[in-house]
């Protein structure tokens, strides 16, 4: 076997990649951005025949610095509040033209949990044939890390600083999936960048169903969460393995699948890697209480969704990311 220097340049190789990627390099996301990775994985699963409506937020800002665009698919920036409404309109227009092009809406947790929630609710209620993907990095990262209703309990942001009165965010993370489930839409799921095969599988499922589908993707933010750039996937994986971010699928509001956790990690494994939870490791009775509180929130998730694995499974928290020689994956 002779070794040869590749004869193709990087730009030639880039045009000859085996998979279509709707999000191109040269975007301005921070080093190790989980959302950039999540968005690209989602576009990989969608393919080229799509229209995307994108709410205001990091993703919109870092992909489209004027006059350039990192998108390889038709993409439209809506305002913060109305992404779901814009996507609804796109879908209606395509329907009127009898075209089968898919419509996907992207939003961050700010644009989904908070600002865009009523438009989203409307879209789900009218059951538009749209896949709504929420990239959940658990705060308003684009404007400098302010708390959102998705920020987990006890996390530090610039508007939920730990101090004399509080140990980080006072309130709980909004249980958005239950709100979505109440709309009885055909498909809803949670996913994460740590399990790319699982994520792509859920995106394909969401596109397949007739009617509205919703996926929320846990996307680590090195800047806002205060973890090392290299540890984004590690952190996201631990969020699943501790039970803090359950991987579930719902059809018509009913739980139809959950990724079992083979080895349940203590929540401190997850929290310790992130500066936003640093204050919980101080020698302070309130910090200890909050750690216990977060552990109980994880235990609650494990209980209500039945996450503890009965026996090893190839799609559980240890098996779902197994790699094989030659890049064979489950999805």
């Amino acid at each position: 076997m002779t070794l040869e220097q590749p004869t193709k340049s990087c730009s030639e190789l880039r045009r000859a990649q085996p998979v279509f990627r709707g999000l191109e390099a040269g975007h301005r996301a921070c080093q190790g951005c989980g959302q950039a990775l999540a968005a690209r994985l989602v576009t990989e699963a969608i393919g080229p025949d799509v229209l995307i409506a994108n709410a205001t937020g990091c993703l919109e800002v870092f992909t489209t610095a004027w006059p350039q665009s990192a998108w390889r698919v038709p993409w439209l920036h809506s305002v913060f509040a109305n992404t779901a409404a814009v996507a609804s309109g796109m879908e209606a227009a395509l329907k009127a033209q009898k075209r089968n092009t898919k419509v996907v809406a992207f939003g961050g947790d700010g644009g989904t949990f908070d600002i865009g929630l009523q438009a989203l609710s409307g879209m789900l209620e009218r059951n538009h044939n749209v896949l709504y993907v929420c990239f959940d990095n658990e705060a308003y990262m684009n404007t400098g890390v302010q708390r959102s209703s998705s920020t987990p309990h006890a996390a530090e942001t610039t508007t939920s600083p730990p101090g004399r009165e509080r140990a980080g965010k006072r309130h709980l993370k909004k249980d958005l999936v239950t709100i979505i489930a109440a709309h009885r839409i055909p498909y809803a799921a949670t996913a994460t960048v740590a399990y790319p095969s699982d994520l792509r599988k859920k995106v394909r499922r969401g596109l397949q169903v007739e009617g509205a589908a919703f996926i929320v993707v846990h996307s680590p933010c090195p800047l806002g969460w205060g973890h090392e750039n290299a540890l984004g996937i590690e952190v996201a994986r631990l969020a699943v393995q501790t039970g803090l971010y359950p991987m579930i699928e719902l059809e018509r509001g009913e739980l139809v699948g959950a990724m079992p956790i083979r080895e349940v990690h203590p929540v401190t494994d997850y929290l310790r890697l992130q500066d936003r939870f640093k204050h919980l490791f101080a020698d302070d009775p309130r910090a200890r209480e909050e750690l216990e509180h977060l552990q109980e929130l994880a235990n609650h998730n494990i209980e209500v969704y039945g996450l503890r694995a009965q026996k090893p499974d190839r799609f559980d928290s240890e098996g779902a990311d197994t790699v094989r020689r030659g890049g064979m994956r489950t999805a």
């Binding site: 390099a25 040269g26 301005r28 006059p67 350039q68 665009s69």
Partner: peptide, 13 residues
């Protein structure tokens, strides 16, 4: 005022 696809490649990060 639309941007052409993949033009971010001009920006070498």
């Amino acid at each position: 005022a639309f941007a052409k696809p993949g033009t971010s490649l001009q920006f070498k990060t």
